[in-house]
């Protein structure tokens, strides 16, 4: 029996990137901020994206806890040129996605959630 595309962490990222063209980069990062797997354009450094994810988690967690919003579920950052989105992928990892400004966030989140569920099963 052959493995489907989404049976590996790399496959999950490739599937996610393939389903939404506005996704420019995506990565699975441990909750401690270490890169696990990524699908990135050549000008994006994996370690840099992992560090950015870690910094976003730290600040996001602080904001959520300090303002009584409970445990952190996701962090979203919008710049003029697009979004950086981080969501939990199981207990020990996060899924980080970078999109263009024209991305339809509803669709992106839907596919990110599906991908995160697969990641949670694989890690």
């Amino acid at each position: 029996m052959s493995e489907s595309r989404g049976d590996t962490l790399e496959g999950v990222l490739n599937e996610l990137q393939g389903s939404i063209p506005e996704i420019e980069a995506c990565a699975i990062v441990s909750v401690e901020g270490l890169p696990i797997v990524s699908a990135l354009p050549t000008d994006v450094d994996e370690a840099k994206l992992a560090a950015i994810t870690a910094a976003m988690l730290t600040l996001g967690e602080k904001a959520a806890v300090e303002l009584g919003k409970g445990n952190l579920e996701q962090v979203n950052v919008k710049g003029v040129n697009g979004w950086i989105l981080v969501i939990q992928a199981g207990m020990n990892a996060c899924l980080t996605v970078s999109t263009t400004a024209s991305a339809k966030l509803g669709l992106v989140f839907l596919d990110m959630k599906r991908a995160a569920e697969k990641v949670a099963q694989l890690i």
Binding site: V31, E32, G33, L34, A47, K48, A50, A51, A54, A55, L57, T58, E61, N71
Partner: peptide, 17 residues
């Protein structure tokens, strides 16, 4: 676990990046 993950993340940010 959350507290441990937080210090692990802070240390990785400080030492490795």
């Amino acid at each position: 676990k959350r507290a441990f993950q937080a210090i692990a993340r802070e240390v990785i940010l400080k030492r490795m990046y």
